[in-house]
Design a protein around this nucleic acid. Sequence first.
DNA 1: GCCGTTTTCGGCCCGACTGTTTTCAGTCG
Length: 574
Amino acid sequence: MAAVLSNREVAAILYEVADLLEIKDVKFKPVAYRRAAHGIETLAEDIGRVAERGELEDLPGVGTHIATKIKEILDTGKLGYLERLKAEVGPGVRDLADIGGIGPKKAMLLHQKLGIENLAGLEAAARAGKIRELAGFGEKSEQNILTGITARKETAGRYLLGRMLPVAESILARLAVLPAIRKISLAGSLRRMRETIGDIDILASSPEPDTVMAAFTALPEVTRVLGRGHTKSSIVLESGVQVDLRVVEEGQYWTALQYFTGSKDHNIALRRRALERGWSLSEYGLKEEETQKNLAGSTEEDLYRMLGLPYIEPELRENRGEIEAAEKGTLPAIVTYHGLQGDLHVHSDWSDGKDSLRAMALAARDRGYGYIAICDHSRSSGIDRGLTPEKIAQQRKEIEQLNRELKGIVVLQGIECNLGPDGTPDLPPAVLGDLDLVIASVHDGLRMHGGEMTRRVLAAIHNDHVDIIGHPAGRILLRRDPSDLDLPAIFEAAAAQHVALEVNSSPSRLDLSDTNCRQAKEYGVIFSIGSDAHAKEELQEIRFGIATARRGWLTAGEIVNTRPLTGLRDWLRG
DNA sequence: GCCGTTTTCGGCCCGACTGTTTTCAGTCG
């Protein structure tokens, strides 16, 4: 059997080809390879199946040549063309361009003039003071290279959305009150709510940009000012994250917000659309080529309307087909941030949570929920204080008492039961049958071989007592890859068995992922969104799960906890 | 290397900032 490669792995090979071609200063091909790679990366269907049907060339950006290369990758797991490029350019040269301030040109120059092969070589050359001697480099660029290498070692350059959004919102709040500020918003990947972000982007409008920049660069948490201009300044926070602030004139705010929200690919597609109409789109406006008259209206909605499109939510702006769908009027009405009636996955101090049942219930009511499902861990999950059948019976009494007492919120008794190696829950069927809701999750043996792991989860899906599969892919962002699972098989079974797949909102999980959701919905899967809160303050992290669902094009109808309690109960019985 | 309700050839998004330069290339988003 030939090696089975995921879409992501195929795309990674094409991206590498693009980078190496760019280093070789080949024109236009890098863009072509990147576009093909992006199309494959965001494809809902398995690329192998597309290839089997002989439809590779129907994919956007894939022509005869790239199709042949994709076939080679799928057949052999490798690409001869890439191997030749690597041999030609030098195997580690591509990594050099991961350092800020170094692009393809400088990477090649460093390689050719100093024989640098990798990041270790780059660091050594910088420390030895050799880089400043190169034409086009100086002392400052040498220092920046060293700083960049350090930053990369510490963080690998990505940060969790759930950790950075509060930081960004705090900065935003302090800038928003400045008298010089007219409008201000988050932009970039943070506004699109990507699961990890590379930096924080903020956009503001002001008649006095210098005043705003002065306040921004003087924020107490700033450890370094990377640059300060009239329209753009960049700072680095103690955490190592970079924050960019752009300040534009009032009249340019909405086009600038659209522009700086991205994604880059979405914007390129929009700009092409503008060009087709004889206009040019930039952060400064939508302009008629000849007259330079600005056609953009006074909101982002106006801008999309001018381009013949309905408004496209920031979470959808990834050039994953949203522009085509908008044009056809088939863009889904994605779930809203206030669209949930309850939280289906929270913990209490009965297992590893911090707060009592009562505290969790009251906090849920404060959020406007009608119900909350307490899903503490079961006994074998390796987590201290996991619940035994006896404990579950005691907990039920307390929950019943709470439900008699509390108005405006219904507490459901659920469980997050642990799945054994063969997919059997670690509680007897009779115990599971008495609970309102059963989440089944894998917490150990995550590195199981693909077939075994898939069978394990499928067994849980076919268990009559299981309502939801918790954090199905088992990934930890920036730390642990998803388990080796046949996701299409799981999606198919979950849809057939009416078992919901969870979108876990914990900032380091966001599992299922946005692209998983998008793929699963094609199978008719129903989803549940849970905060996985272990304290009442964490209930608000549900917004990251909702964001993930939105990025996965999910509508309220596809998410079981958008239903009021009666609707939820109907589904649980069904 | 891809693509085309003007094109099967000749295009392929746009502008600011940095660090190095005495007028601009490279990088970045």
